[in-house]
Simulated scan of single mutants.
Amino acid sequence: MRGSARGLFVGRSVVLLLAAGALAGCVADKDVTGSVMRASASREVATGDREGQLRRMAATYAAAYEKNPNDPGAAYAYGVTLRALDQRAQALAVLESASIRHPAQRQILAAYGRSLADAGRLEEALKVLGKAHLPEQPDWRILNAQGAILDQLGRTAEARRYYESALKIAPGEPSILSNLGLSYALAGEPAKAEAVLLQAVANPKADDKVRANLAMVQGLKSAGPAKKPTRG
C-alpha cells in the first residue's frame, strides 16, 4: 500500500473513521436485516435528536469530502452517514466512487456492497461484499448481510449457512438471529421463526425493530401459514 493509500488508517482520515466507526457498525445491519442499530453504536446518536445529530455529522463529513474526495476516510464517513439518513442514492454515488478510487480498502467495499443492496442490486452487492470479506479475518456483519441478500434472492439454504457462520463469531447477536428468524418466516415456518426471534429479543442489545419482527411473526403464526412476511 503506497503513500496516500495508507490514509484510511493514518493522519486526519483516522479521525473521521473513528467518528464514523460506530455509526458504520449500526447501519451495517440496517440494509437487509431486521436490526437497525446495535446498542453500542446507538449511543453515538441516541442523545437528543438522532436525525439532527446525523445531519450535523453529514455536514461535517461533506465538507471534508468536498475538500478532498480522494481521502478514503472522508468518503467512507460521508457515505455511511448518508445511508443512516436514508439518502441512499447519494450514499451509493459516494461509496461507488470511493470503491473505484480505493479498491483495496475493505471497509469501503463493505459499505458499498450494503449500499448496492439498498438499491436492489443484489447480485452486485454479493460480489462486492465477497471482496470485502476475508476468510482469515471473518466479519459477522458482512456474513449477516450476505445471508440476508441470499434470502432475498431465494437462496435460503445458502443464506442460513451464512447466518450460522456469523453466529459462530457473534453468538446470540440479535441482528443475526432476527435475519435467521425472518428467513424461517419467509420459508413459511412461523414456529421456527418465532423461536429464533424469541432468542433475539432476549438479548439486551435487541432493538425495537427486532421486537417488531417478533410481533409480526407471532401475528402471522396466529393467522395461519398462508401469509409470509416481507423484510423491513
Rank of each mutant, 00 (worst) to 15 (best):
S4A: 14
K228Y: 06
L54A: 05
N203C: 09
R50P: 03
G11R: 09
K131T: 09
R155I: 04
R114V: 06
S115P: 02
G73N: 05
T60K: 13
D151L: 11
L198K: 13
A63N: 14
L214W: 04
A212I: 02
M1Y: 12
L95E: 02
P69V: 00
A110H: 02
A28L: 07
S35A: 13
S178L: 02
R38D: 01
L82K: 05
K205A: 09
G79I: 01
G147R: 03
I108P: 04
Q199D: 15
S178A: 15
W140Y: 12
G224M: 10
A77W: 01
N144R: 07
G73C: 06
E173H: 04
G21P: 07
V128C: 12
L82I: 03
R12I: 04
K67G: 08
L18G: 15
A62K: 07
L16T: 02
Y162H: 09
P171V: 02
T60A: 12
P138D: 13
A193H: 04
P174H: 06
P69G: 01
M1D: 12
V10S: 14
A98H: 01
L167F: 00
S183L: 04
A185E: 00
G147Q: 05
L198C: 08
A75W: 03
A58H: 06
S178I: 01
N144F: 00
L54N: 06
G224C: 10
A117T: 03
A63Q: 14
A39F: 07
A91C: 08
S97Y: 08
V80Q: 03
Y184A: 08
A39L: 10
L129F: 14
K227E: 15
L182K: 00
D151H: 12
G154L: 08
A119F: 11
A193N: 03
E136Y: 15
L16E: 06
V80R: 02
P103S: 10
K205W: 06
R121Y: 15
A74F: 03
L129E: 12
